[in-house]
Simulated assay, not measured.
Amino acid sequence: MVTFVGFPLGGLAAMLTVGRVDSVAAALTGGLITGAVLGTAQVLGLGRLMTNPAGWVAATAGGLAVGLGIGATAVGFATDLTSLMIEGAISGLAVGAAQAIVLRRPRHRLALAWPPYLAACWALAWALITIAGVQVDNQFTVFGAIGAVSVTAATLVLPFALARPAVRSAS
């Protein structure tokens, strides 16, 4: 659950550095900052299960920069429920795809499922905070505590999958 704090800390660092996500530059820079903080928190949470911590942090940062840049631009930087769910799905997909590159060696099947799974988790997280009445019109880089808890809980499958011995196919 230590990974939970990566979301609000990353979002706060980005907000203090670049402000609102109201331009491509702010989305790219804010996504990079948020992703770096989030990736670091995830590495700390995964501990020894993470075999490539630097790769994971870089993948999370780069994935969120690209995903937020594309997602926020695709919805015209809007903050209504549908727009944030689309932005979240695109951001989650990009983060998941980048992280899947790191996961592919130890867990090929998990790596294939990870991007669409994370896309769904992130879209749901944005929906939850919007419905809860969080001031999403502040154009944050990432969802708040309610979304962070939901994504953290939903992604608890990762440490369990990484802890299981890899199944080797006979070739």
Rank of each mutant, 00 (worst) to 15 (best):
F160S: 15
D80W: 03
L12P: 08
A61T: 03
A119D: 14
S171G: 14
D22G: 01
L28F: 02
A153Q: 02
L49T: 12
T141V: 03
G35N: 10
L158E: 09
M50A: 12
V66H: 04
V66A: 05
P106A: 01
Q135F: 11
A163H: 12
T17C: 11
G88K: 04
A123M: 00
G47D: 05
Q42N: 11
L81K: 08
A132H: 12
W114G: 13
T152Y: 03
P106Q: 02
V151Q: 04
G6L: 11
I86L: 07
V5W: 13
A111F: 04
I101G: 15
M1T: 15
A145D: 15
I101T: 15
G71K: 06
P53G: 04
A119V: 10
A125D: 01
T17L: 04
A153I: 08
M50Y: 01
G147V: 02
P159R: 03
R104M: 06
A94L: 07
L28Q: 03
R168Q: 14
E87S: 11
A61V: 06
A153D: 14
V66Y: 07
L49F: 00
A54M: 15
F4D: 11
G30C: 02
G133P: 15
L44R: 00
S150Y: 03
M85G: 01
L44A: 11
L156P: 14
